[in-house]
Design a protein around this nucleic acid. Structure first.
Length: 636
RNA sequence: GCCAUCUUAGCUCAGUCGGUAGAGCGCGUGACUUGUAAUCUCGAGGUCCUCGGUUCGAUUCCGGGAGAUGGCUCCA
C-alpha cells in the first residue's frame, strides 16, 4: 500500500468523512451523527498538517501535498471561470485526498463537463503559471471582488488590516496561502476530478446551495494510483454488495428505508457475536439488562432528549392519553432500574449492559447500507460508580474494549480525548478529574491518542477509539463518555459511608457501537471472509461425483454432531462449479471427497485462503476446526 | 430535507431515434457422472419504480412523487 493510501481517513468514494461517528451521544443534536457513520476523522484529526509524505515535486524543497492541493484548487477555479464566464466562486480548500471548490453556476453542469475542465487545468498547469501573493487593504479587496458575492461575504468576516490575494495567470483569488511558486509543481498525472456534489454555502442549509467539484490530488502519480486502487478495493468490499452476495442482510425500501433485515446467514453471525459479547460481559463484571422499546414522554423530557434531540426522534404514539416515544437511547431505562431501590456505596460500581435496539430518525439522504440506518442495536452499557472508583472503571472499560478489538482482529487503534466545550454542564473540577482519569487510562494502556479540544459533549468528556481496517480506513467505534447531566436530571443518588446522599458518576460506553454498523465495518474489513467462529457456513462438503453423496452425508453428520456448521453440496453441478460457489461464499473449508477419502475415512481440505490443500483423517479435521472455533482463531 | 445522477427479470446490465423488451448469472427441467474456481439442453420469470400530462400509441418525451447512489464539517 502506498503512503497515500496509508494516509489518515481513507474513505471509499461512498462514504464521506465525518466528525460525527460518535458511538453515541446522549444529546447529539449539535452533531448530526450517532452511532453510525462512515470512516471518520475526529475533530482533532483534520488533515491540515497531515499527509506529509508529500514528495518533492521538482526542484528545491519538497512542496507539502496540501499546498499542491490548494494550488490545484485555484487552477480549477481559473479553468471553470474561463470555461463558464460569470460563474461565482466560493471556497476551495485542500481536503484529505485532494481538494474541492464550490461554485455557483448560471446553468447547472453535468459530470460530463468534468473532462473539459480537467483538460483546461492541464493546459494552465503546463503553461507554467506563477503564483503571486499581493497584500491589499480591505477596501481594495472589496473592489476587486465586487462581482463575487461569496468572496465579499468572506472579506467582511476578516479582521481589518491587510488581506492577501493570490494571482496566477490572470486569475485572482482571496487566499491566505501558501501556494506553490509555479503551477508546474502540480503534477498533471497526479490529480483527477472526481465528482460533482451540492454543498450549502458555509455548510448552512439555510444558505444557497453551491455546486462543489471534488478532485483527488497527490504529489505523485504513484500516490494517486495507489489511492484509486484502494477505492477500487473498497468498492469490492462494499457491505451492501457483499451483504447481498453472501446473503447476510437486506433492506426494503417498500417496508421502510434504513431498516435492516438480517437473513439466516447474517443471523448466524449475529448470534455468535452476541453470545460471545454476553459471555465477555459476565466475565468482566457486567450484568445484562433488557428494557422496553418505548416509554412515556416525561422520561425524554427529564433526560432532555425532547429538548435537544427531538429532530432525531420518531413522532410519539398516543396510548391511553399518554405520549410514548420509541427510544433513541437506552439510558433513561437503565436509570429507571437504578431508581427502583436505594443504593449504598457498597453496591457500586454497577456495570449494566444491554444490547438495546434504538430508533433514530435520520434524513433519507444520509442512509447508507449497514453504516447509517434508522433502527439499530447498541452494545450499550452504563457504569454507575463513586467518584473514587471512576478511574479504575475507565481503565477497565478501555482494557475490555481493546480485548474485544484484538479478538476480532483489529490491531491498529487510536484514541481521541475530547475535552470541555464552551457550552457545558457540570463544575469544572468534575470535568478535570474526569478528563484526568480518561488520560491516565489511555496512558496506562499505551494507546496513542490525540486531544480533541472542546470536542466533548456538553454533558461530559469522552474517549473515542478509532480502529483501522484492512485497507487502511479508520472507523470510530468505541466511545466512553462521562455524563454529568443525567444523574443530575434524574436525581440519582447513593448513600455513602458517612450516611450522606451523594450523586454517583455515570459513564456511558459502547464498544462495538451499533451491531449493524459493526457488521458493516467487519464485512468490509474481512471482505466477507469472517474468522471461522463467526462464519455462517464453516464447512462445505463436495463429493467429486454423486456416487460419493453418501460418504459426503456421513461427513456432514459427523461434523454437525460436533456443532460445526456444515453442509454438503449435492446438486448435480460439476465439482469445479461447486468449489467455485463455495469459494465465492467465502466458506473457510471445502472438503472434497471421493473414493480415496471414503476408503480412508478422510477428507481433502481445500482452504478459502488458497493455501495448499491437505488430506486429513476426518477426526483430525474435526479436531482442527473445533480448536479454531474455540480459540476464535483468525487463522484457518 | 437540499444539489447532482440514477431506477428495465431474484442479481449484474443491454435496449427501444415513441409501436409494451433482451443477455449473462441465479432458479426450475432433462441429459451427462466428473478429483480442486463455471458441463450441456430446454423452460419459467418483467404493471421497464410510481402517479399524472403530451400523443392514435409512453418503458422511452415532459411534470409531480418514492427510493437508491455521490455529496451537503474541512474556510478566504
Amino acid at each position: 500500500m502506498t503512503g497515500a493510501t496509508r494516509a489518515r481517513t481513507r474513505h471509499r468514494d461512498g462514504i464521506r468523512d465525518s466528525v460525527t461517528g460518535e458511538g453515541f451521544s446522549v444529546f447529539a443534536a449539535d452533531r448530526e451523527g450517532s452511532v453510525q457513520r462512515g470512516p471518520s476523522r475526529g475533530r482533532g484529526q483534520r488533515a491540515r498538517k497531515g499527509d506529509s509524505m508529500a514528495s518533492s515535486s521538482h526542484s528545491g524543497a519538497p512542496t507539502p501535498v496540501e499546498t499542491i492541493r490548494h494550488s490545484a484548487a485555484h487552477v480549477m477555479a481559473e479553468a471553470v471561470t474561463k470555461l463558464y464566464p460569470g460563474t461565482r466562486v466560493g471556497i476551495g480548500p485542500a481536503i484529505d485526498d485532494g481538494f474541492y471548490y464550490d461554485f455557483q453556476f448560471d446553468k447547472p453542469i453535468q459530470p460530463e463537463d468534468l473532462p473539459a475542465i480537467e483538460k483546461e487545468m492541464r493546459r494552465i498547469i503546463q503553461g507554467g503559471a506563477e503564483f503571486r501573493r499581493r497584500e491589499v487593504s480591505k477596501a481594495e479587496a472589496r473592489l476587486s471582488f465586487a462581482s463575487e458575492p461569496f468572496k465579499l461575504e468572506l472579506i467582511e468576516g476578516l479582521e481589518d488590516g491587510t488581506i492577501s490575494l493570490y494571482e496566477q495567470d490572470g486569475f485572482t483569488d482571496l487566499c491566505r496561502g501558501p501556494h506553490v511558486a509555479n503551477s508546474r509543481e502540480i503534477r498533471t498525472d497526479a490529480f483527477k476530478l472526481r465528482s460533482i456534489a451540492g454543498a450549502y454555502w458555509r455548510g448552512d442549509e439555510k444558505r444557497p446551495m453551491l455546486t462543489r467539484i471534488y478532485a483527488y490530488c497527490f504529489s505523485t502519480k504513484a500516490e494517486l494510483e495507489g489511492h484509486l486502487k484502494m477505492l477500487e478495493e473498497a468498492e469490492k468490499r462494499d457491505n451492501r454488495k457483499l451483504g447481498n452476495e453472501l446473503k447476510l442482510f437486506s433492506t426494503h425500501e417498500e417496508a421502510g428505508p434504513g431498516l435492516i433485515y438480517w437473513h439466516p446467514k447474517g443471523g448466524r453471525f449475529r448470534v455468535e457475536l452476541e453470545n460471545w459479547w454476553r459471555q465477555e460481559h459476565y466475565a468482566n463484571g457486567y450484568e445484562i439488562l433488557y428494557t422496553p422499546h418505548i416509554g412515556k414522554s416525561w422520561l425524554w423530557e427529564t433526560s432532555g432528549h425532547l429538548g435537544f434531540y427531538k429532530g432525531n426522534m420518531y413522532s410519539p404514539m398516543k396510548i391511553d392519553e399518554d405520549n410514548y416515544y420509541a427510544k433513541p437511547m437506552n439510558c433513561p431505562f437503565h436509570i429507571m432500574i437504578y431508581q427502583n431501590e436505594t443504593h449504598s456505596y457498597r453496591d457500586l460500581p454497577l456495570r449494566w449492559a444491554e444490547l438495546g435496539t434504538v430508533y433514530r430518525y435520520e434524513k433519507s439522504g444520509v442512509l447508507h447500507g449497514l453504516m447509517r440506518v434508522r433502527g439499530f442495536t447498541q452494545d450499550d452499557a452504563h457504569i454507575i460508580c463513586t467518584p473514587e472508583q471512576v478511574e479504575d472503571e475507565i481503565l477497565e472499560v478501555l482494557r475490555f474494549s481493546l480485548h474485544i478489538w484484538k479478538t476480532l482482529g483489529f490491531k491498529d487503534i487510536k484514541a481521541y480525548l475530547a475535552t470541555k466545550p464552551a457550552e457545558s454542564v457540570g463544575e469544572k473540577e468534575r470535568w478535570d478529574t474526569a478528563l484526568e482519569s480518561l488520560r491516565k487510562a489511555v496512558d496506562k494502556e499505551g494507546i496513542p491518542y490525540e486531544m480533541d479540544e472542546g470536542g466533548g459533549a456538553f454533558y461530559g468528556p469522552k474517549i473515542d477509539l478509532k480502529i483501522k481496517d484492512a485497507i487502511g480506513r479508520e472507523w470510530q467505534m468505541t466511545t466512553i463518555q462521562f455524563d454529568f447531566n443525567l444523574p443530575e436530571r434524574f436525581g440519582m443518588e447513593y448513600v455513602d459511608k458517612d450516611g450522606l446522599h451523594k450523586r454517583p458518576y455515570m459513564v456511558h460506553r459502547a464498544l462495538l457501537g451499533s451491531i449493524e454498523r459493526f457488521f458493516g465495518v467487519f464485512i468490509e474489513h474481512t471482505a466477507g471472509a469472517f474468522p471461522v467462529w463467526l462464519m455462517p457456513d464453516q464447512v462445505m462438503v463436495i463429493p467429486v461425483a454423486s456416487a460419493f453423496d453418501d460418504y459426503a452425508k456421513k461427513v456432514v453428520a459427523e461434523l454437525r454432531k460436533a456443532g460445526i456448521r456444515v453442509s454438503a453440496d449435492l446438486s448435480d453441478a460439476r465439482m469445479n462449479a461447486k468449489i467455485r460457489t463455495a469459494q465465492g461464499q467465502k466458506i473457510p473449508y471445502m472438503l472434497v471427497v471421493g473414493q480415496k477419502e471414503a476408503d480412508e475415512a478422510a477428507v481433502a481440505v481445500r482452504f478459502r485462503d488458497g493455501r495448499d490443500q491437505v488430506t486429513l483423517a476426518l477426526d483430525e479435521f474435526k479436531a482442527r476446526v473445533l480448536a479454531r472455533i474455540a480459540e476464535k482463531s483468525l487463522d484457518l
